[in-house]
């Protein structure tokens, strides 16, 4: 059994359906065992369900209601018919009662066995889903590690040191960039970002506007950060700016670090 999710938004992200791999499996294996988290997930589902209200209004045609009520009426009638044909058998005197005395315990035992098997099956399905998710996550990490190794070993990979701009938070970031592979990796550290701000990393292309390469939430050590450049794009420089939390489509804030590709 895994522990409580560390961040409260994890429940909303799960309800939204964006989590995958290990993150998704962690919630799925924990929530059935924890009433507190099950309640938090129910609240998150409720918040996310409110997004339904943002859909443009489309009134259903009256025919749907008519079809539904016909379907409901037909099912109610057939259930009534089943009940009436069952009645004589239930009132079937001595033999009926004797059969009932045998069949009822058998039925109860079967029901218990079915519930047990169903529960066990659900548990095994969850475990299988968790293992599959683990495997997918490991495969993804292995692919990233392979790409990173290829990039670092390639002879035509260049190293770009990003210089801190005057008056800006301190940092030491380096980008290893391979134009032929269209990939770059950034690592180093940067001072924590001011309140309500995030660092945003940019690829400055030879032609056209800068392209976002990711948002660095709070600063601190930056672990190798892989970037895949849009096809055909050659980088002229890499830069980091301060932007509103979550990042912007184009740079709007001050330049914190910049380094030209030599």
């Amino acid at each position: 059994m895994s522990g409580h999710p560390t961040r409260p938004e994890d429940f909303d992200l799960y309800a939204l359906g964006v989590l995958e791999g290990e993150e998704k499996a962690a919630i799925e294996s924990h929530v059935p065992t924890c009433a507190e988290c099950a309640n938090k997930l129910a609240e998150a589902r409720g918040r996310i369900a409110l997004l339904a209200f943002s859909a443009p209004r489309v009134e259903p045609p009256a025919a749907v209601r008519e079809r539904l009520m016909r379907q409901v009426h037909a099912s109610a009638e057939s259930a009534g018919a089943r009940r009436s044909t069952d009645e004589p058998q239930r009132a079937g005197g001595f033999f009926g009662r004797r059969w009932a005395a045998i069949l009822v315990p058998v039925g109860v035992a079967l029901a218990i066995a079915t519930i047990f098997l169903w529960t066990e099956n659900a548990r095994l399905s969850r475990e299988l889903a968790r293992q599959r998710a683990n495997l997918e996550e490991q495969k993804k990490q292995l692919d990233e590690a392979r790409h990173l190794a290829d990039l670092l070993e390639a002879k035509d990979t260049v190293s770009v040191a990003l210089a801190v701009q005057p008056g800006m938070p301190k940092g030491d970031l380096r980008v290893r960039y391979n134009a032929k592979m269209g990939m770059a990796v950034c690592d180093g550290w940067v001072e924590p970002a001011p309140a309500n701000k995030s660092y945003q990393l940019w690829v400055v292309p030879m032609e056209g506007k800068p392209v976002s390469a990711g948002v660095i939430d709070h600063g601190g050590p930056i672990h190798p950060w892989m970037m895949k450049l849009p096809q055909g794009m050659a980088a002229k420089a890499f830069a980091v700016t301060l932007e509103p939390v979550g990042g912007m489509p184009q740079p709007t804030g001050p330049m914190v670090l910049v380094g030209p590709v030599s």
Binding site: L16, R47, S212, M227, G247
Partner: peptide, 23 residues
């Protein structure tokens, strides 16, 4: 075509904002 890290940060901060505003 955005980096995965950017998408994750973007959605997490959007969800935080929605939560604040809806509550």
């Amino acid at each position: 075509g955005d980096p995965l890290g950017t998408v994750k940060t973007r959605i997490r901060s959007a969800v935080e904002s929605l939560k604040r505003n809806l509550l």
